[in-house]
Design a protein around this nucleic acid. Structure first.
Lengths: 153, 153
DNA sequence: CCTAAATGTTAGGCAGCCTAATATCAATGT
DNA sequence: ACATTGATATTAGGCTGCCTAACATTTAGG
């Protein structure tokens, strides 16, 4: 693939993405929890995670994670615990209410996604699945890219 | 593909998307214009478009488009003109400064995308390209979906 | 005509991200 | 032992971008 084709692909990818994000956000909101909130709930299932790890998994800065977790805590879905091995850190865990809410939201959200996905032909689904690793790779590359530049700047 | 596999695919898709959007946004911002701003500039090249059409193309409500266009106008990159065929409507067109800015931003942004994309294997690129139509289809389905529900609610 | 629909704008509000500044605690070197 | 440096999280303040509701203007239709 030459540079011109690559540029075109990049362009179309971007366009598709922009829409996909907002669509997905609206869809999640209708399911009761925001995309971010649900992501956090899902990742702190079980043992729980430290704030910094949550931020990193989300791909955002720590204060943004603090804010999101604060909202979830006020809603009674997660709780902060002291980390026994490091007094600076906190461990965020789900409450039982959080387990409940996450299950509900996951179920509803998945149902709607499945509904949307089931309108696609088998080849299209296959194409989608095949593309995910590439997308993840791009995310990683661009992410470290921009983060690096930010540190420099 | 059964429902379980479909649900899993939907889940992974969502996760990948969430990251992709923020990554892409940050990347665009570094290129001087936001994703939205550049999208608008690109779509009003030439004859220009009416506000409502811009909103629809972006997948947002009209007031959101008004806001974005207002920013671009204040930056001197687009201008509002009266629509000769309808006194209610406005036509948004690029200024020459807008042409310049769009070209620059497109070039820089594309360069970085190409850089990121060129790290992928040919099969991965092919997979990505093959997946775009499916993603667009999903966007469409989910989009009309949520819009409908919003009208009902 | 006169009412109903279409087109934009303005105002107000919310989510989600950022940086900068601050407080605590950990780790390290002397 | 202790002072410095680094790590972890919070708070404060600010920005983008989306939304709905309320409004003005113009078009279209009965």
């Amino acid at each position: 693939m030459n540079d011109l084709e690559l540029a075109d692909l990049a362009q179309r990818y971007r366009t598709t993405l922009r829409l996909a994000v907002y669509v997905s956000r609206r869809l999640d909101g209708a399911a009761g929890l925001s995309t971010t909130a649900l992501s956090i709930l899902n990742m702190v299932a079980g043992e729980g995670l430290r704030m910094g790890v949550i931020a990193e998994n989300l791909g955002v800065r720590v204060p943004s994670a603090t804010e999101q977790v604060g909202r979830l805590e006020r809603a009674g879905l997660v709780e902060r615990r002291a980390d026994p091995s490091d007094a600076r850190a906190v461990v965020i865990r789900r409450t039982s209410g959080g387990d409940q809410a996450a299950e509900d939201a996951n179920r509803r959200r998945t149902a709607r996604m499945v509904e949307a996905f089931s309108g696609l032909a088998p080849e299209e689904l296959e194409a989608l699945r095949a593309a995910l690793p590439a997308m993840d790779k791009i995310n990683e590359r661009l992410h470290t890219d921009t983060n690096t530049k930010e540190h420099i700047a």
